Computed example of a mutant assay.
Amino acid sequence: MMIKEPMANPNPNPKLPPHTSSVMMTVPAATKETTGGQAWNTLFTGTKLAKKGMSLVFILPKVQNGEKVVELSKIEIEKECAYWKQTIILYVIGASPTIATVAGFIASNWNFASKPRIYYHNDGYFIVRFNSMEDRNEVIYSGPQLLNNRPLVIKPWSVKFDFAKEVLKIIPLWVKFPNLPLNYWSMDSLSRISSGLGNPLYVDECTTQMERISYARVLIELDIIRPRPNSVKVADPHGKEFDQAVAYDWKSIYCGTCCQLGHDCSKAQNQVGDTTCRVQERQPRAVHDGGQDKRQTKATAKPRPPENLKAQGQEPAAKGPNHKMRQA
């Protein structure tokens, strides 16, 4: 028995994002399951669910060595990449703010950009999509940011983005090269010097225009797991070497135990141990009694009787199984 396929909806859903399209679901007649004589795919036609969502189409997977392999369309992937290209990844170190909090921060601190779209991921980071590449770049190159006194990690979205591998380990930091010789301020020289630390991304405007010559400032992607050096060894064309000093706008703390930014469990444990040792080695304090200086510790010092008992002519007896108040 032949079953008529539903006609595709000629009008795409206007509520869907611009990079998506609305296509009615079509299933081969041999695989259709019916309920009450009606095909499953016809149950959603014309319903509110179909109007709000995005309809799909069945595409037969490829079979290789007896296993199904799903092949994606290069054209569709490139279309999606173009849509998400003007996006940044935003992560707040040591805090989990709400979307409303992030939206308020963006409105007050990035008011030069058109209102972006904010998405939250359950892994604890945000995806912020701007309306133009100019707005995105302006935010990335704006320098270190704080949200409620918590540092922000901001980096551009990429096709190979992996939160666990990138946000928590490789972050962009502004780095200064104090007293860098002026003949080393070219794009090539700054790129070479910055590559000694990580992956250079951008030079700030003052360095580009040489409006400030006391130091060069570069945005560099750094692996925060590795120790950050305080200098870079540079060799000039004549073979003469010198150590170029390095200063970081923000020194991040990474915990190798928790694989998170903002704290270090090993240092916290060491501090607790040091505190215990200091308490045990605390010197006896001086107790002045009747003009005599007696050195006593807390463990050996005799407790003083309360003032109210002295006023009543009483003094506390020594604690014991038959502890009672003795009359003076």
Score class of each variant (00 low, 15 high):
residue 266 S to L: 05
residue 250 W to M: 03
residue 290 G to H: 08
residue 261 L to E: 00
residue 223 D to W: 02
residue 232 V to I: 05
residue 269 Q to L: 12
residue 245 A to E: 07
residue 229 P to L: 01
residue 256 G to C: 02
residue 287 V to E: 05
residue 294 K to G: 07
residue 253 I to H: 06
residue 289 D to H: 15
residue 289 D to M: 15
residue 225 I to K: 08
residue 282 R to F: 11
residue 272 V to R: 07
residue 225 I to C: 12
residue 244 Q to M: 08
residue 295 R to K: 15
residue 296 Q to K: 07
residue 236 D to L: 06
residue 250 W to V: 03
residue 265 C to W: 00
residue 250 W to G: 00
residue 294 K to R: 13
residue 280 Q to I: 14
residue 266 S to P: 07
residue 254 Y to Q: 02
residue 237 P to A: 06
residue 255 C to H: 01
residue 223 D to C: 01
residue 267 K to T: 10
residue 267 K to I: 11
residue 277 C to L: 15
residue 280 Q to E: 15
residue 272 V to T: 09
residue 225 I to V: 08
residue 280 Q to N: 14
residue 291 G to V: 00
residue 291 G to W: 07
residue 233 K to H: 14
residue 254 Y to P: 01
residue 251 K to Y: 03
residue 275 T to C: 10
residue 279 V to C: 13
residue 292 Q to A: 05
residue 291 G to T: 03
residue 247 A to W: 06
residue 232 V to M: 01
residue 275 T to E: 11
residue 251 K to W: 01
residue 271 Q to E: 14
residue 297 T to V: 05
residue 252 S to Y: 05
residue 254 Y to F: 09
residue 229 P to R: 03
residue 226 R to N: 15
residue 255 C to N: 02
residue 220 I to K: 00
residue 266 S to R: 09
residue 289 D to E: 15
residue 263 H to E: 03
residue 234 V to H: 00
residue 268 A to P: 07
residue 270 N to K: 12
residue 282 R to H: 12
residue 270 N to D: 13
residue 255 C to A: 03
residue 240 K to M: 06
residue 292 Q to N: 07
residue 295 R to T: 12
residue 278 R to S: 03
residue 256 G to L: 04
residue 278 R to I: 06
residue 223 D to V: 01
residue 223 D to Y: 05
residue 246 V to Q: 07
residue 281 E to W: 11
residue 227 P to R: 08
residue 247 A to C: 08
residue 293 D to E: 13
residue 249 D to W: 06
residue 248 Y to A: 00
residue 227 P to C: 11
residue 291 G to I: 09
residue 262 G to I: 04
residue 273 G to C: 10
residue 222 L to T: 02
residue 237 P to L: 08
residue 255 C to V: 05
residue 260 Q to V: 01
residue 276 T to C: 06
residue 281 E to V: 12
residue 244 Q to I: 03
residue 297 T to P: 05
residue 292 Q to W: 11
residue 257 T to Q: 13
residue 273 G to P: 01
residue 252 S to N: 08
residue 267 K to C: 09
residue 291 G to Q: 07
residue 265 C to R: 02
residue 296 Q to M: 14
residue 248 Y to P: 00
residue 274 D to R: 10
residue 238 H to R: 14
residue 268 A to S: 10
residue 241 E to L: 07
residue 227 P to L: 13
residue 240 K to A: 03
residue 272 V to H: 07
residue 258 C to A: 06
residue 220 I to R: 04
residue 254 Y to T: 01
